[in-house]
């Protein structure tokens, strides 16, 4: 699998990174090198291997349905870049945020 500049554009959009063209060019080279190194993964025969999503054998870790006091709006909004004192605020969404 070879990485293209179009891939870089697409991935940058998915990740919401407003990269400059210079950054995209640099990343194309760096990611190609890393993916090239990683390519050895494909040589491993994994036909008999299960996937490991997390180590450990824990299952059914659940909590009882008992409410605890929330921290409240004042504490929630304390770190907000922009708020009106009750709500978090963001700018124009213009027909539902860009997708992809």
């Amino acid at each position: 699998m070879t990485l293209t500049r179009a891939d870089v554009d697409h991935v940058a959009t998915l990740a919401r990174l407003g990269l400059t063209d210079a950054e995209k060019d640099r990343l194309l080279g760096e990611l190609e090198a890393i993916l090239g190194h990683i390519a050895r993964l494909q040589q491993v025969d994994t036909s008999k291997l299960a996937a490991t999503a997390q180590v450990g054998d824990l299952v059914n870790v659940m909590r009882p349905d008992v409410p605890e006091p929330p921290i409240g709006a004042a504490a929630a909004l304390r770190n907000a870049p922009v708020s009106d004192g009750s709500y978090f605020m963001v700018g124009a969404i213009q027909g539902g945020e860009l997708d992809g």
Partner: peptide
């Protein structure tokens, strides 16, 4: 002003 630009620029 636009949410999309805010996302892109904030993370960039």
């Amino acid at each position: 002003p636009s949410l999309t630009d805010m996302y892109l620029e904030t993370r960039e």
